[in-house]
């Protein structure tokens, strides 16, 4: 029986939290019907991915994880701008944020 070092415990905790954030995010994306909150849930998933990258970067002593998180930040900002522009457009068409009014698109 071997033991866990403090650093390994820290990294494992961070990775478990990252998985938790990602899966809560996807549960929210599937269960919420407000378009803005759905995009907020994708941001939650971005947070999980960024945390996992940083924890793995720490585990390998490599800075690529942190650099990649900077790119994730960029993509998240771009995604927020585009998604919210889209939400405003859709809101103007139907005067509601309910995503189910657009369910006719699936046919």
């Amino acid at each position: 029986m071997s033991a866990l070092t403090a650093d390994a415990a820290l990294i494992r905790l961070a990775l478990v939290i990252a998985a938790l954030l990602f899966s809560i995010g996807i549960a929210g994306f599937l269960s919420r019907r407000n378009m803005i909150v759905m995009f907020l849930c994708t941001e939650l998933m971005f947070q999980g991915a960024a945390l996992a990258l940083i924890a793995f970067g720490k585990m390998h002593g490599d800075l690529s994880g942190q650099v990649f998180t900077i790119f994730i930040l960029t993509v998240a900002a771009a995604e927020a701008a585009l998604a919210l522009g889209l939400v405003i457009l859709l809101y103007r068409r139907r005067e509601t944020l309910n995503s189910e009014v657009w369910s006719e698109l699936k046919e």
Binding site: A3, L4, T5, A6
Partner: peptide, 8 residues
């Protein structure tokens, strides 16, 4: 995750 039950 924090390894509270595990030997450290």
């Amino acid at each position: 995750g924090a390894g509270l039950g595990a030997p450290t």
